[in-house]
């Protein structure tokens, strides 16, 4: 008898539906939907997504105040990289005592964004920036470097335009 009543009165279903109803009314009956604390969906491509300060994005090379590449070719980053995506060619530059990277190639398609390279660099010459939209149509767009390419390692690449706005 008890079981029959329970089958007839769907209290369990009502309990579940009340959760949905609560959230629905909270969002639906409010004039300014963005103010609702439970409204957790962000309008991402229009509103740029925020990332945390420690976010690990694309590898970027840094220059010092004079606009000179900070890297001195110690090759620590090349050695530590678990996927071996960094290739450095050592060279000399006039008026510079330290070695200068003639070539610094970074194949982004195989980078796993682990930040080991940044950690190993004792000269703060590289960082991972906050760019996360790194998809591209051509494989060539992933080969970044310091020379001879239309993209370079010093600025965010043109493919993630949304996340750049945040930087």
């Amino acid at each position: 008898m008890n079981k029959f009543l329970r089958t007839l009165l769907p209290a369990d279903i009502a309990k579940g539906l009340s959760v949905t109803g609560k959230h629905f009314s909270q969002v639906f009956f409010t004039a300014n939907r963005r103010k609702v604390p439970f409204h957790i969906v962000s309008e991402y491509p229009e509103v740029p997504a925020k990332v945390q300060p420690r976010f690990r994005g694309r590898l970027t090379m840094l220059k010092d105040e004079q606009g000179v590449i900070k890297c001195i070719c110690c090759l620590a980053c090349e050695k530590i990289c678990p996927t071996q995506v960094i290739t450095i060619e050592k060279g000399k530059q006039e008026g510079r005592k330290m070695p200068y990277p003639v070539r610094y190639d970074f194949e982004m398609e195989r980078c796993i964004f682990c930040e080991f390279c940044v950690e190993s660099c004792g000269f703060d010459a590289i960082i991972l920036n906050h760019q996360f939209e790194l998809a591209a149509y051509n494989r060539e767009d992933f080969s970044l470097g310091t020379v001879g390419l239309d993209q370079n390692m010093f600025e965010p690449s043109h493919v993630g335009k949304f996340s750049v706005a945040d930087d």
Binding site: V51, Q52, R54, F55, R56, I112, F113, C114, E115, F116
Partner: peptide, 19 residues
Amino acid sequence: REDVLDINEAFCGSRLTTT
């Protein structure tokens, strides 16, 4: 889960493959 991943991201910079 999103909040937990945000906490991951705040600590180590990555959400899923944390290292």
